[in-house]
């Protein structure tokens, strides 16, 4: 399928695909080798190839936020990211969040303050907030709101999401 054009062959670039290629990905601190086409999104690789189904596919278009994961610590929509472009990067998903000694404070606060109903948006919400708290352990209410402005919750659990995140922020403020 790959056509060779002399001027391109001369370039020091590597074309991959369109068939399956081996992708090396680092997810939640572990190395994986996945055989996938270049058109596979990070979301599909996580869900289908790695069985990490915490990130959800809702719109597949950057319209909802349920697929939010962190790449090098930054929240992105994994449905609009090609997996092939994530090689060599640090990928964090909700599955990697739980602490060895239990739950992340955000996870605890989400349970305690009932920050979800159906829970389908929850992994995405928590990942967006995790990135915020990593940068700023004591965010204000407005900073919290802005951090999840790209995560829809159709059940409308927003007030409780805010409450949960504020509780974590306040706990940090107290030390």
């Amino acid at each position: 399928m790959s056509r060779s054009i002399p001027s391109v062959r001369a370039l020091a670039v590597r074309k991959r695909g369109p068939g399956k290629v081996t992708l090396r990905l680092q997810v939640n601190g572990e190395e994986y080798a996945v055989l996938a086409e270049p058109r596979r999104t990070l979301l599909d690789v996580l869900r289908k190839d790695l069985g990490l189904t915490g990130a959800k596919k809702v719109c597949d278009r950057g319209h909802c936020g349920a697929c939010t994961v962190l790449v090098d610590g930054i929240p992105i929509y994994s449905c609009l990211k090609l997996a092939i472009e994530c090689e060599g990067k640090r990928i964090e998903t909700i599955e990697g969040l739980s602490f060895p000694d239990g739950l992340h404070p955000l996870q605890k606060a989400f349970i305690e303050h009932d920050a979800f109903q159906c829970g389908f948006c929850t992994p995405g919400q928590i990942m967006s907030l995790k990135a915020l708290f990593d940068r700023n352990p004591h965010p204000s209410a407005d900073e919290i709101r802005s951090a999840v402005a790209g995560n829809l919750c159709r059940c409308g659990a927003y007030a409780k999401i805010l409450r949960a995140a504020q509780a974590v922020s306040e706990a940090h403020a107290k030390g």
Binding site: M1, S2, A12, V13, R16, G17, P18, P38, R39, I84
Partner: peptide
């Protein structure tokens, strides 16, 4: 989405 080749350009 149609299949495609992918190239990482370096310059």
């Amino acid at each position: 989405m149609r299949p495609f080749e992918h190239v990482d350009a370096t310059s």
